[in-house]
Design a protein around this nucleic acid. Structure first.
Lengths: 216, 216
DNA sequence: AGAGTTCTCGAACGAACGTTCGAGAAGCCG
DNA sequence: CGGCTTCTCGAACGTTCGTTCGAGAACTCT
């Protein structure tokens, strides 16, 4: 028995445990407001014992952000393979983002909210992933426009507005009360492509009917 | 010019100076990461001297957030007077928000980013203003829908997605390089009402690859 | 078994934190 | 001038911070 709680035995799993619980704590109280002693308490690992797994508080934040962001980008790239339709690709971008958001709210909040808290050895590395992610989104949008479908909207503003819609849910989404990933995705894609007003006459078909199987 | 620095003489103006510089500092380094000693250094007021103007660090944050948020809501209400067209009202909502955003980036960042940093005597008061602001936006959106123009989009999701687009610029907007308030407003309103695709296109949108396979 | 590596932690470090206090300068009114 | 209020600040308070260190437990491999 040797011991107490639900902490995994081998080292790699314990690191994952630390990252998960730390993300939760950072998400709840904020990075700067959270002390290593808080992390120690929440993980069940002693104060000094934590430093076997990371070099500094900043490094801990980096490990969380890097793992989450890398996963999101790689999951998206793998999902995009073989899909060439720009609209389909856009939907996958949003779906991938929102799905990860709703299933890993703590990691996503740390990623969105504690972006600037990262110091300079690490900050640049995360920025690099972010630029890759933005480039991917930008390419998808540009090919949407290139298909002759897009008007003269400023593409940078459009893409960043899309990110605004995708990233804001961490401030308001309540699981169980608010729509699930599929519904939220179709709502956001609907607004981004067609807006909330019906196109011209009466066809309000496209915007609303994508994925909305009811779900409580 | 006998005075030592640029700090205004009378008390009310000095308080405003403290609030302005503090907002700037909080915006740059974050609320928790900023110490009262940082504020002292940045404002030119001594450490203990600051406590003549506010009771605690939390209270200082409250003063900043309350002043900014109150101003935004009241400016909007006054602008909305006499405008009954729902689309016109929506445009005023976005314009008012974005204009304040771009002209007071520090205050807006503190408002968006340090929302949860506010402790419980003060937090509730700011939440109350926020609810009033959301209600106003929600009413505008509902009357848009009531005019027979709106489809079956979840109104809560729609309004909060709009807020997502309006609030995200604090992460990316670079004055001079990115569009000014008027342009940014019309871009966001355009996306929100009509989307980025032209109305006409026969998008075979509804059927593409959204369901996809489970992830790895 | 014993040697070596991997992992854990109590105790302590100096530095920085938010806040307080009391002395006193500066401005106003008689 | 003298008394009152408004404003300012150096010095100090107790606490908490991130990080380090060395001793030793636990696990591996032969």
């Amino acid at each position: 028995m040797s011991s107490s709680a639900t902490i995994p035995r081998d080292s790699e799993a314990k690191l994952q445990h630390i990252l998960r619980v730390s993300a939760q704590t950072f998400a709840k109280r904020g990075f700067e407001a959270t002390s290593i002693r808080d992390i120690s308490r929440a993980t069940g690992v002693s104060l000094s014992g934590l430093y076997y797994y990371f070099e500094s508080k900043q490094h801990l934040l980096y490990l969380i952000q890097n793992a989450a962001f890398t996963y999101v980008v790689e999951a998206l790239q793998s999902r995009l393979e073989g899909v060439n339709d720009p609209v389909g690709r856009l939907k996958l971008l949003v779906l991938n983002h929102i799905e990860y958001f709703l299933s890993h709210p703590n990691e996503m909040k740390v990623l969105s909210h504690e972006e600037e808290a990262l110091g300079e050895p690490y900050g640049e590395k995360v920025q690099e992933i972010k630029r890759r992610y933005y480039s991917l989104a930008r390419e998808i949008f540009d090919s949407l426009v290139a298909e002759g479908m897009g008007p003269g909207v400023n593409p940078r503003v459009a893409v960043l507005s899309l990110f605004g819609m995708m990233n804001w849910p961490y401030k308001w989404h309540k699981p169980g009360m608010d729509p699930d990933a599929a519904e939220l995705t179709s709502a956001i894609v609907g607004i981004f492509l067609h807006g909330v007003l019906p196109a011209g006459g009466e066809s309000n078909v496209a915007a609303s009917a994508i994925g909305s199987r009811s779900r409580g």
